[in-house]
């Protein structure tokens, strides 16, 4: 039997995970030395409250989970002899998967014959969300592990994500965006436009003046790169900027007609790196 896993960095909520049959691995963040595991330490994510804390000047940190924690997640299915598929956020953005590799190697030695496979979404938050949901769809349709892996091999690079952040200080501290303007401090009103590369890294492609222009730039990217967008979910992620996210949704529908748009709150762990008021769109594309 195939069991599917994903993690909270993909923005999937426990309710959505349950609907598809995913088990959720919780990726932690820390504020003032207090570590919080999403959906373990709380039931529902109060995005507004979380991002308000960030607005007050707090810079959270994130950490990798340990080999033992991975073993705890996976061992029951290894023991039961189930095949396992883990659809996770980008390997290029973290070292947490080193611990996972060790855990899996240990479990494979202990339970020979169990198949463990992974799909690297080469992204985080809405782009991972889009891919995870499609894998969930396939799983519900009864597709086999190999069929899903074949789909992923072909399709992962066709999920593109472009987004802008409001305040660079979060990214600057996390050091996870390349090509970012080497500014000295906060840029009020000027936003870097960032995309998720084929290597699963965040890369800045320049700055945009003012939010209306930034939204226009996202729409232009959907227009330029979009391919069969109507056949897939369009995921608009935001870090506590629902009105702006809906504004982008309306702009997309005004240009392309009615679409299957899903709005997601950027999870707190990813949000710790991008800060509040960011908005991004994931769509099916010719390429990233």
């Amino acid at each position: 039997m195939l069991k599917i896993f994903t993690d909270t960095d993909t923005d999937l909520t426990p309710a959505e995970a349950a609907r598809f049959g995913f088990q959720l691995i919780s990726m932690p963040y820390s504020i003032d030395a207090k570590t919080t595991y999403p959906y373990v330490d709380f039931e529902t994510f109060d995005g507004h409250a979380f991002y308000d804390v960030l607005r007050s000047g707090v810079l959270p940190t994130t950490s990798a989970i340990s080999k033992e924690q991975y073993i705890n997640y996976f061992e029951p299915d290894f023991a039961a002899g189930n095949d396992i598929l883990y659809v996770h956020f980008s390997r290029a953005m973290t070292n947490t998967f080193d611990a996972m590799d060790q855990a899996v190697a240990e479990l494979k030695a202990r339970y020979p014959g169990v198949r463990f496979e992974e799909i690297d979404t080469k992204g985080i938050t809405p782009i991972s969300y889009g891919i995870v949901c499609e894998v969930g769809d396939l799983y519900l349709q009864g597709k086999t592990l190999d069929e899903i892996l074949a789909w992923a091999k072909e399709e992962v690079d066709h999920f593109a994500m472009y987004f802008f952040a409001d305040d660079l200080k979060f990214f600057r501290r996390s050091g996870r965006v390349s090509g970012l303007a080497a500014t000295m401090g906060t840029l009020i009103g000027i936003r870097p436009l960032i995309y998720m590369s084929q290597e699963g890294k965040m890369v800045s492609v320049g700055t945009v003046k003012g939010r209306p222009k930034a939204l226009q730039a996202l729409l232009d990217k959907v227009t330029e790169l979009g391919s069969e967008i109507e056949k897939h979910r369009i995921c608009i992620g935001h870090s506590d900027a629902p009105e702006i996210a809906h504004q982008l949704g309306a702009m997309i529908e005004e240009r392309f007609g009615k679409q299957n748009i899903v709005y997601v709150y950027v999870n707190p762990t990813a949000g710790s790196h991008c800060g509040p008021n960011g908005v991004g769109v994931c769509f099916h594309a010719k390429h990233r």
Binding site: A181, A182, T183, M184, G185, L187, I188, G189, I190
Partner: peptide, 11 residues
């Protein structure tokens, strides 16, 4: 001053 500073690329 604000806008010039916002355009500063330290590299």
């Amino acid at each position: 001053g604000y806008f010039a500073l916002a355009n500063l690329q330290a590299d």
